[in-house]
């Protein structure tokens, strides 16, 4: 353990807390997807730092690239679904899912 490790762990924890708080409290569907993206940033930071500590950056970079690709696909599909729901319900509120708005 070193100061750098401590600071990176603290930053990742702060980012993860922010994202989880938003996932729990927000009702806006786009903001919920943004929170998932923010949570991914914390995971990326921790993965890369783990590779740096273990001196195996090649393996962790391969995983991070896989994660980024999947993150992009998740974001695109989620946004497509949200736009469809918005056209159907005229609302971005997660509480209105499944209910037709007048």
């Amino acid at each position: 353990m070193s100061v750098l490790s401590g600071v990176i762990l603290l930053a990742a924890l702060l980012i993860a807390i922010t994202a989880i708080y938003c996932l729990l409290r927000s009702r806006n569907l786009i903001r919920i997807i943004i929170a998932v993206e923010v949570l991914m940033k914390a995971v990326t930071l921790l993965l890369v730092f783990a590779g740096y500590l273990a001196n195996n950056v090649a393996l962790t970079q391969a995983f991070v690239i896989t994660m980024i690709v999947i993150e992009a696909v998740v974001a695109v599909v989620a946004v497509g679904l949200i736009i469809n729901l918005q056209n159907k319900n005229n609302s971005l509120d997660a509480r209105h899912l499944g209910y037709k708005q007048d």
Binding site: Y52, V57, I65, I68, E71, A72, A75
Partner: peptide, 22 residues
């Protein structure tokens, strides 16, 4: 942190593509 390839992907996909999608 010596992860240049991951950094390039992060910049092009996360800061670029996903921002445009949002």
């Amino acid at each position: 942190l010596n992860s240049a390839w991951a950094a390039v992907f992060e910049l092009s996909v996360c800061a670029g593509l996903i921002t445009v999608v949002f």
